[in-house]
C-alpha cells in the first residue's frame, strides 16, 4: 500500500473501522514509514483532544431541576385534546383577546392561550339576562345556566353554557380573590381567579374524562380522602383582561343563539395585568368522570382546602 492510500484509511484504522485485510496492509506499511507513523500519531492526538473537550464540556452542564415537572405538565397537556378543542372554540369566538398564558424559556407552557371569549360570553350572558327575557327563554332550550361568582364583581351571576356535565365551583376562597372569567363548553369548564393585592392566581380547569383514566405521575396527596397528585416548581405568566364593573353601553344580543358576536362590537374598555409566577403548583384529582386541575401559587394547604370545598354549581332553571 502506498502512503496516499494509507493516509485515506488512517482515521478509520484508528477507530477500528477497517477490514482485517486493510488492517494487515496498513500495519505492514507503518513498520517502514516514519511519515505515516507521525501522521497516525497526530490524528490520534487530535481525536483525543476533541474527545476530551466534548466530554469535559458536556460534564459541566445538566438539565434544570424543573425538567421533569415541565415534562409532566406537557404530557398532561398532550393527553387532553378536548381541552385544546375548547380553547380553539373560544379563540374562534374572540380571537386575540383573552387570558394569555405565556412561557419563558425556563417556564412551563401550561396552556397555549385561553381566548377571552369567556369574557365575551359572560358579557353576552349578562346582556341576555338583563335586557331580553324573551330570548332568554329561547336560549334556555339550548343552554344550561349555572351560578358562579361574577367576574364583573358584585355577587353572583348565572352563566350559560351547553354543558353536558354539572361544573363544580369552590365554595371556599381565600380573602382577596376575585373571579376573572368563567368558560363552559360541553366537555370542559374553566374558572379563573386572581388576588391583585398578593398577585396570587387560581386557575381551575374541569374536564370530562373516562372513568378509567388514571392520575398522571406526581407527588401523591389526597382531596377529601380521594387520591390526588401535586406538581410543584412550575413557572409561567398569566395575563388577565380587566373589565369595568358594568358594561359601558347596552349590548344587542344575537338574534340567532348560534351567531358568533365579534368581540370588536362589544364596547368595553380593558386593561391587561400580567402575573408571573415561579412557585406554581398544580393539584390534579378526579370527581366521578371529571378531572379537575387547579393551578395556583397559593400554599399547598390552601389549595387542598379550596379543592375540598368544590361543590356542584347551582343550576338555574330558565322557564
Amino acid at each position: 500500500m502506498k502512503c496516499q492510500e494509507v493516509n485515506k484509511l488512517l482515521l478509520a484504522y484508528l477507530n477500528h473501522e477497517v477490514t482485517p485485510s486493510e488492517r494487515m496492509l496498513i500495519r505492514a506499511h507503518l513498520v517502514g514509514c516514519n511519515a505515516c507513523q507521525q501522521e497516525l500519531a497526530a490524528l490520534s492526538a487530535l481525536q483525543s483532544r476533541v474527545r476530551q473537550s466534548l466530554q469535559v464540556s458536556a460534564a459541566q452542564v445538566a438539565p434544570s431541576p424543573q425538567a421533569w415537572n415541565r415534562l409532566q405538565a406537557r404530557l398532561i397537556e398532550d393527553a387532553h385534546p378536548s381541552l385544546s378543542w375548547f380553547r380553539t372554540w373560544l379563540q374562534r369566538l374572540a380571537p386575540g383577546v383573552g387570558r394569555i398564558h405565556q412561557t419563558d424559556k425556563r417556564g412551563v407552557k401550561m396552556k397555549k392561550g385561553l381566548a377571552f371569549t369567556v369574557i365575551a360570553a359572560l358579557v353576552i350572558a349578562l346582556a341576555v339576562m338583563a335586557f331580553v327575557p324573551a330570548v332568554r327563554a329561547q336560549v334556555g332550550e339550548l343552554l344550561r345556566w349555572f351560578r358562579f361568582e361574577s367576574p364583573a364583581g358584585g355577587g353572583e351571576v348565572s352563566i350559560p353554557g351547553s354543558v353536558e356535565f354539572t361544573p363544580l365551583r369552590p365554595t371556599y376562597l381565600p380573602a382577596g380573590f376575585q373571579a376573572m372569567s368563567v368558560g363552559l363548553n360541553p366537555e370542559a369548564a374553566s374558572l379563573n381567579y386572581w388576588n391583585s393585592s398578593t398577585n396570587q392566581i387560581l386557575i381551575i380547569d374541569e374536564l370530562r374524562v373516562s372513568s378509567e383514566r388514571s392520575l398522571p405521575p406526581g407527588r401523591k396527596v389526597t382531596v377529601n380522602g380521594q387520591p390526588a397528585v401535586l406538581l410543584t416548581g412550575l413557572e409561567g405568566n398569566i395575563s388577565f383582561v380587566l373589565l369595568p364593573p358594568t358594561p359601558s353601553a347596552p349590548i344587542t344580543p344575537p338574534a340567532d343563539s348560534d351567531q358568533i358576536v365579534p368581540l370588536e362590537s362589544v364596547p368595553v374598555s380593558e386593561t391587561v395585568e400580567t402575573v408571573s409566577y415561579t412557585d406554581g403548583r398544580q393539584l390534579i384529582w378526579h370527581i366521578g368522570d371529571v378531572e379537575i386541575r387547579m393551578l395556583s401559587n397559593l400554599p399547598e394547604e390552601e389549595m387542598i382546602k379550596i379543592a375540598e370545598s368544590m361543590a356542584p354549581a347551582e343550576e338555574e332553571s330558565i322557564e
Partner: peptide, 22 residues
C-alpha cells in the same frame, strides 16, 4: 443527562437544549 448534553453540544444553548429534552 445524555439527551440534554448531546443537545447542548449540538446547539451551544442551554435553553434550546432544555427544549429539545422536552
Amino acid at each position: 443527562n445524555l439527551v440534554y448534553r448531546t443537545a447542548y453540544l449540538m446547539l451551544d444553548d442551554a435553553g434550546e437544549a432544555e427544549d429539545v429534552l422536552q
